[in-house]
Design a protein around this nucleic acid. Structure first.
Length: 651
DNA sequence: CACAAGGAATAGC
DNA sequence: GCTATTCCTTGTG
C-alpha cells in the first residue's frame, strides 16, 4: 500500500504495481476508485464535503454569553457551566446532528463537543458546556464552532474568555445557572427572552490580545479574527492537544494492504449532565474504521456507499499527551478556524489578510484542509484491516452493514435522537453532494497540478519525470523530502535518471529508502499521472485547471529552462508566491523592493534544493546576498533590520 | 545564539 | 571571468 499525502488530499493505492486501483481520501472521507486507465482524475475520485457553492451552508450567529459573561472572574480549578446563546440566522433549519465543537485555544476541561438540536430559522437556543477553570490565575480564551454531522464548520467562531482569579464571582452566576437548570430540563431550551442579567450583549467580542495568556506559553492566546489559522509553530506545538489535524505518515504504521482506509470515526459517549448534553471522549476510545466502498470503474461519480454522517470529534482534546508532533507527522491548519466560506476558490481560504498565511512549517497553504484525521494507530491496523477482504469481495454493499456490525467500535453519536435524520433528507443530501463531486474532483485535481507546476518552477525541472536528469531527480527527492517532512533520504537515489526512477517498483524504492520509499514512490506516481494527463489534456479545456492558474500558466518565472538561476531571481520567485512561501519570505514594501526573510532556515533550504546544495544554510545564502551589495542588486534598507533586504531596482 | 559584514579561497560554468 | 559557495573572523543585540 502507498499512503500519499498531498496538501489536503490523501491517496491510497493498494496495488501500486498494477496501478489500476486507487482510493482517495479527502476531508477525512474516502472512496475507492477502480481505474482501468492510469488516470489521476480517477485516482482522485473523492467525496469532498467542503463548502461547495452548490451546498447550502447553515448559518449561525452568536447572540450573547449567558453565563460567564464579560468581566466575570472565576476561581482557579473550579467547575463551571459555560453557556452561549446562539441563533440560526439562516433561512433553513439546521440539518440534524449538528454540534458545537472546541476548535482552538484553551479547552477548559475534557468536553470538546456538545450536541445541538436542529434549530429552525431565526430560532435561538442556549448551548452549555461543562468546563473547569485553569489552576493558575490569568486570562484565558478558547474557541468553539458549530459543525455539521459531515464535518462542515459553519457560523461564527464563539469564544470563551476566562479571567481566572482567586475570589472570582463564579458562585453568583453559577447559582443562577443552577437555579435556571432546575426549571429547564431540556438541555437546549428555546429561549424566549433576555432573562439573564449577567449576559454580555457584545457579539463576537475580540479578546484583548495583550491580556490573554495561554498557560502553555503558545501563541494561541493571540488568535484573533484576523488570524484565522494557527501559525505553523502553533500547530506543531499545540499546547492544547488539538491534534486532530495530525496524521502519522510513518509507513510502518500502514504496512498492510488496505483497500480503503478512513480515519474519521471515534468512540464517544454521550451523556446528560445537569441538563447539559456533553460528549466525553476517553482518549483510549479512539478507533479507526474501515469502510467498504466502491465506485463504478473509471468514474468517481457517487458518494461513498456506506458513508454515514457520523459525528466525529476529531481526536485532539482526547489526547492531551499529544502536545507536539513528532517528526514524520504532517500538521494542517485547522479548518474550524478558517472564516466562513465566501470565496468559492478554496485556495483563498485561511489566509484572508494575514501576511503570514497559516500552514505547516513545511507546507504551502493547503488548499483543501482535512477536517478530521484521527490517528491510525498501529494497533488498530489489524482491526482496521479486518473486513477489508470482505470489502473487496462484497463490493459496494458492505459499508453500511460494516458500520452496523461493529457499533461498539464505532459508536455513532446520536445524542437526543438527533443523529441521522429522515432517510429522505439524507438522500437529498447525497444527491446534492453527488452533483458537487465532479466539480470538487476538478478542483482537487487542479490543486495537485498547480502544486506540481509550482515545484517545477521552483526546482527548474520538467513536469514529466521521464525527462529528469540525475540532478533533477536529486532535486525532486530533496524537494519532496522537504515538502512532506520525510526522513532524510540522503543519496540513495544518486545517479538515477528520471527514466530509471520511473522504471523502479515500490519495492525497489523501499530497498533504497526503507523509511519512506513507498511514500516517495507514491509521489512519483502522482507526477507521472499528472504528466500523462498534461499530455492528454486538450488545450482550452479548463477542467483540469485550478481556478486562476492553469497548467501552462506562464506566471512570472524569472528562470529560463536550463539556465542557472541567480539567487536574487529565486528570492523574487518566492516573493511572488506569497500563498506558498509567505511564511518564509514576504514583502515589507513591494514598491520599494523591501522584503523580509521570515524563516531564514527554510529559505536557505529551498535555495539549497533549487541549487542542489543540500548543505546550504542561511550563513551561506546571506553571504551570497551580500555579494550583491557591491553589484547594486540588493542592499540593506536605509533603516537596517535583521533579515530585511531591499532590491536596488524593484520591479 | 542568530544575524550581519566582509575577506579569502575555491568550485562550477 | 563571473557567480556562487564555503569557511572564516569580527562585531552586534
Amino acid at each position: 500500500m502507498i499512503l500519499l499525502c498531498w496538501p489536503g488530499l490523501w491517496v491510497v493505492q493498494p496495488s501500486p504495481s498494477a496501478g489500476t486501483s486507487w482510493s482517495a481520501v479527502v476531508s477525512g472521507h474516502s472512496v475507492l476508485v477502480e481505474s482501468k486507465e492510469r488516470n489521476l482524475q480517477a485516482a482522485i475520485g473523492a467525496y469532498y464535503d467542503f463548502e461547495s457553492p452548490n451546498i447550502n451552508v447553515p448559518s449561525m450567529s452568536f447572540v450573547e454569553d449567558v453565563t460567564i459573561g464579560e468581566g466575570e472572574s472565576i476561581p482557579p480549578d473550579t467547575q463551571f457551566t459555560k453557556t452561549w446563546r446562539i441563533q440560526n440566522t439562516g433561512t433553513e433549519a439546521w440539518p440534524p446532528g449538528v454540534c458545537l465543537k472546541y476548535v482552538g485555544g484553551d479547552q477548559f476541561g475534557h468536553v470538546n463537543m456538545v450536541m445541538v438540536r436542529s434549530l429552525e430559522p431565526q430560532e435561538m437556543a442556549d448551548v452549555s458546556v461543562q468546563m473547569c477553570s485553569p489552576s493558575t490565575a490569568g486570562m484565558y480564551q478558547g474557541q468553539w464552532r458549530m459543525c455539521t454531522a459531515t464535518g462542515l464548520y459553519y457560523g461564527d467562531v464563539i469564544w470563551v474568555i476566562l479571567s481566572v482569579e482567586v475570589g472570582g464571582l463564579l458562585g453568583v452566576t453559577q447559582q443562577l445557572s443552577s437555579f435556571e437548570t432546575e426549571f429547564n430540563t431540556q438541555p437546549h431550551r428555546k429561549v424566549e427572552g433576555n432573562f439573564n442579567p449577567f449576559a454580555s450583549p457584545q457579539k463576537n467580542r475580540q479578546p484583548d490580545e495583550n491580556n490573554l495568556k495561554d498557560p502553555g506559553g503558545s501563541e494561541l492566546g493571540t488568535i484573533s479574527k484576523n488570524t484565522w489559522g494557527p501559525a505553523p509553530d502553533q500547530i506543531e506545538q499545540d499546547q492544547n492537544g488539538l491534534s486532530q489535524n495530525s496524521v502519522n505518515l510513518s509507513p510502518s504504521s500502514h504496512s498492510n494492504n488496505l483497500s480503503v482506509v478512513t480515519y474519521s470515526k471515534v468512540g464517544a459517549l454521550g451523556e446528560q449532565e445537569n441538563g447539559v448534553s456533553t460528549v466525553l471522549i476517553p482518549s483510549d476510545s479512539l478507533k479507526t474504521q474501515t469502510h467498504k466502498t466502491g465506485l463504478s470503474p473509471g468514474g468517481a461519480t457517487g458518494l461513498i456507499p456506506g458513508l454515514e454522517p457520523v459525528l466525529s470529534t476529531g481526536m485532539g482534546s482526547a489526547s492531551p499527551g499529544l502536545t507536539t508532533l513528532p517528526s514524520g507527522r504532517l500538521a494542517w491548519p485547522d479548518p474550524a478556524l478558517l472564516p466562513p466560506p465566501r470565496d468559492p476558490d478554496p485556495r483563498s481560504w485561511g489566509c484572508p489578510e494575514s501576511p503570514s498565511p497559516p500552514g505547516t512549517p513545511e507546507q504551502p497553504l493547503p488548499a483543501f484542509c482535512l477536517h478530521y484525521f484521527d490517528m491510525l494507530y498501529p494497533e488498530d491496523v489489524a482491526w482496521a484491516t479486518k473486513g477489508v477482504g470482505e470489502a473487496s469481495a462484497s463490493g459496494t454493499q458492505g459499508g453500511r452493514e460494516e458500520a452496523r456490525k461493529e457499533p461498539e467500535q464505532c459508536p455513532i453519536i446520536d445524542s437526543q435522537g438527533l443523529g441521522l435524520g429522515p432517510e429522505g433528507d439524507l438522500q437529498a443530501t447525497l444527491h446534492l453532494e453527488e452533483h458537487s463531486l465532479e466539480q470538487v474532483q476538478s478542483m482537487v485535481l487542479g490543486e495537485v497540478l498547480k502544486d506540481i507546476e509550482t515545484a517545477c518552477k521552483l526546482l527548474n525541472i520538467a513536469a514529466d519525470p521521464m525527462d529528469w536528469s540525475p540532478g533533477n531527480v536529486q532535486k525532486w527527492i530533496l524537494w519532496t523530502e522537504h515538502q512532506y517532512r520525510l526522513p532524510q533520504i540522503g543519496r540513495s537515489f544518486q545517479e538515477l535518471s528520471g527514466k530509471d526512477l520511473c522504471a523502479m517498483s515500490e519495492e525497489q524504492f523501499c530497498q533504497r529508502s526503507p523509511a519512506c520509499g513507498d511514500i516517495l514512490h507514491a509521489h512519483l506516481d502522482i507526477w507521472k499521472s499528472a504528466a500523462w494527463m498534461k499530455e492528454k489534456a486538450v488545450p482550452g479545456d479548463v477542467r483540469y485547471c485550478g481556478g486562476d492558474s492553469s497548467w501552462a500558466d506562464s506566471e512570472v518565472d524569472s528562470s529560463c529552462a536550463g539556465q542557472p538561476i541567480h539567487l536574487w531571481q529565486f528570492l523574487k520567485e518566492l516573493l511572488l508566491k506569497p500563498h506558498n512561501y509567505g511564511r518564509f519570505i514576504r514583502w515589507l514594501n513591494k514598491d520599494k523592493g523591501i522584503f523580509k526573510i521570515e524563516d531564514s532556515a527554510q529559505v536557505a533550504r529551498l535555495w539549497g534544493i533549487r541549487k542542489n546544495r543540500p548543505a546550504m544554510n542561511y550563513d551561506k545564502l546571506s553571504r551570497s546576498i551580500r555579494q550583491y551589495y557591491k553589484k547594486g542588486i540588493i542592499r540593506k534598507p536605509d533603516i537596517s533590520q535583521r533579515l530585511v533586504y531591499q532590491f536596488v531596482h524593484p520591479v
